[in-house]
């Protein structure tokens, strides 16, 4: 998996580190880590519904923050979880622009083994960095 959960970054909540060869891959890893925090088996989330997410920000960290918030929003507002995401990221002038086709399905207790509800992405130790040619993000989720 391109992400791993960390034991000692947050006592009450869930923390993970995610990786990617590119920013697109990093964003995807983070998205999957969030879905995987809420349900045990990602392969059981079928790509039935499509939602398009378009975001812009001049700060890559805040772009990731907003993108992850978007996924949590769909979980509460439409009960949608995403398991398949096509992400395009480009720099337009000083801004990063993200376009994402997110596919997934409605949460179903009979089908998906539930773990814990993610309620917010926090800025606690939140970080995006390029290290030895690979992108890494550190995220603490409020659960």
């Amino acid at each position: 998996m391109p992400y791993k959960y960390i034991e000692d970054l947050s006592i009450a909540d869930v923390a993970f580190e995610a990786y990617g060869e590119s920013l697109e891959e990093l964003f995807l890893s983070c998205a999957l880590a969030i879905t995987n925090t809420m349900i045990k088996d990602l392969s059981k989330v079928e790509p039935i519904f499509l939602r398009n997410i378009v975001l812009e920000n001049d700060d890559i960290e805040m772009l990731l923050f907003n993108f992850l918030q978007e996924l949590i929003f769909y979980k509460d507002a439409e009960k949608l979880l995403f398991s398949s995401l096509k992400i395009k990221l480009k720099k337009v002038n000083t801004n990063y622009k993200l376009e994402c086709e997110a596919r997934g399905e409605e949460l179903n207790m009979a089908k998906h083994e539930l773990l814990v509800d993610v309620k917010a992405v926090t800025l606690h130790h939140f970080q995006v960095k390029l290290s030895e040619g690979r992108w890494m993000a550190k995220v603490v989720l409020d659960v």
Partner: peptide
Amino acid sequence: DRAIQRGLNQIGTLGSGN
């Protein structure tokens, strides 16, 4: 509006975690 959309169906629910 996003806050409202998130909370709309959640009145009377415990939530998870602690």
